[in-house]
Design a protein around this nucleic acid. Structure first.
Lengths: 336, 336
DNA sequence: TTGTAAGCGTTATCAA
DNA sequence: TTGATAACGCTTACAA
């Protein structure tokens, strides 16, 4: 039921070795021969057996994408960028989600990777996660997205800068009492989380503004979390006049909280996010956008280079992509 | 550099056959032996070579997910449902996007599937797409999600009913001049598209209402498309008092159009969507929600059954999951 | 219950 | 440029 390379070889009157070479476009094959083999392979409707090829060559032709979430905007958008590059390169994309707070019991990723892929792309798994370490210890080509780690290639934005831009925007508008909605203060804060926190503090301190501990809240990067966080900020005796949310989705939640308090972003309180989420324009949210698709693309390309280079690159290419501020209606000059 | 089954066999003092059996949990292995082999395999840090196993057994242990979009809410949410099932089953998930209007040149999926996966899951590819036919003609276990096709297992909602529920809701509120925002009138309308159209017409006719051709627009299931569609509806001399959008994302776009026209959904015009998108609650959009994660889960389970059954099921299990109306602020009783 | 050994379909080395 | 042929690492009859 399956045409094999031998059938093709026989039909073409050459050896399997020649068929293999011809079909893979290797050099040292007579063009006449190559053409004939290709034609016959096509006629026979022959497709190479990946398993056999992998076993013999040692290469798997596939890349694993490890992500804590599949359905969240940032993650699915990164994945789409990755996919386009891998598809062009003829590589298989193995999608693997790893433990996240919501998940039941999940397999640890590292064992599922060994002997199975040529390289790994990891999306925004906090460096504190032991699972990340296990993956990296596999020693195979790896690129990180949205987090950086000493000695591992990564593609990120400058999170400190992104937070600086956002905070500076609020400061420039004359706000002095500025709140912040971060990810998680306690368990496994991501690099992004910490860096954005830092950028915020830097600008606040440069502006001579105090960071009121009461105006620091966490929203776990979810809409619901952002809503709760904003609610807690609004129930302070001394409300902030502006809030920096570390992600657009948290900002969306914050907007809802505002609305249920009879307030409107922009008019009653300035709100800025980070991401450039599809919906941010719709919701008129000012945001520091990151090139999310490009993050995925770039990481995939970096990874492919590592894989084809055959060795884990000596010079670790960690690059940061630029962000861009989109000023919309959710931020406005401080009144009085 | 790689521990093989032989190393384990040697260390355990048994044959490779026994190691293979013991490690895969096959019967007819002495429990003592199995335990010893497992322990030694663990000690040696042995992992089976998938390529070798696949080549020898003929099974690939992987499933392809074919989708036109990765980053759109419906699709990524379905994928997350699929992933959870496949991961539990120890199956690899190969993610493959297929041609969509935005895409550059993409490989046709069918050739990339052969000899590579044990089964295929297809998300919402219109039956009119030749690529779908090619995939199905491969004759391997397949399940469709969001579309149905004679003779192929599928998991969907009752799209006619969903549209009926939505339209009936508007009718019940007293609206008589009701517009519709669909997908694409011309090229490759999806099943969902056509069925929702039908449900809409049914209820309209049952209510003795006329479907004004001027109040039919298309939004290509995107936010931007929905915005344009609503704008075209609003520029009619005789505006609708209510609009049924076939997807929440189009409804979101419609909301923006309303806003830019100084109108508010609920107050000035009633708007209802379909999906139960994460953001619909935030945007206070009335919607007919579908169990999207469950769609993916169910399809994956159906597929796994086909695969383990060894044969393409004689009885094709096509199931429809229930939808649920969420009434929110975007719909209100017709005035006057 | 366990072992033997013949594949599985390629790739890659070495000779020709 | 081409051909033999030995891996590649596992599964699975078939025997024992």
């Amino acid at each position: 039921m399956g045409i094999t390379i031998r059938d093709v070889a026989q039909a073409a009157g050459v050896s399997t070795a020649t068929v293999s070479r011809a079909l893979r476009g290797l050099p040292n094959v007579d063009e006449q021969t190559r053409l004939r083999v290709q034609r016959i392979a096509g006629d026979l409707d022959y497709v190479i057996s990946p398993s056999a090829s992998r076993l013999a060559s040692g290469r798997t032709g596939s890349v694993a994408v490890i992500t804590p979430y599949i359905a969240r905007w940032f993650f699915s958008t990164v994945i789409s960028g990755i996919e386009s590059v891998l598809q062009s390169a003829g590589m298989d994309l193995l999608l693997m989600s790893v433990s996240n707070p919501d998940a039941q019991l999940r397999q640890p990723p590292a064992p599922r990777l060994r002997r199975r892929v040529d390289g790994v792309l990891v999306i925004a798994v906090p460096p504190s996660e032991p699972e990340l370490g296990e993956v990296i210890d596999l020693g195979m080509p790896t690129s990180l997205i949205g987090v950086s780690l000493e000695g591992v290639p990564s593609v990120t934005i400058d999170d400190v800068l992104a937070a600086r831009i956002a905070t500076q925007h609020l400061v420039d508008l004359g706000h002095r009492r500025i709140g912040i909605i971060g990810g998680s203060a306690t368990n496994s804060p991501s690099t992004a989380d910490q860096d954005r926190q830092r950028g915020f503090r830097e600008v606040m301190s440069e502006a001579g503004l105090e960071v009121d501990p009461h105006l620091e809240s966490t929203g776990h990067f979810t809409v619901a979390g952002g809503e709760q966080a904003m609610t807690s900020l609004l129930t302070q005796r001394n409300r902030p006049t502006a809030v920096f949310a570390m992600s657009d989705e948290m900002a969306f939640g914050a907007m809802r909280s505002l609305r249920s308090h009879g307030l409107v972003a922009g008019a009653d309180l300035s709100l800025i996010g980070v991401d450039g989420h599809d919906m941010s324009e719709l919701l008129d949210l000012t945001t520091v956008a990151q090139p999310v698709v490009e993050l995925g693309r770039m990481a995939a390309e970096t990874l492919l280079e590592q894989i084809t280079a055959g060795t884990v690159a000596a010079a670790v290419p960690s690059c940061q992509l630029p962000t861009r501020l989109f000023v919309r209606g959710s931020t406005a000059a401080a009144t009085g």
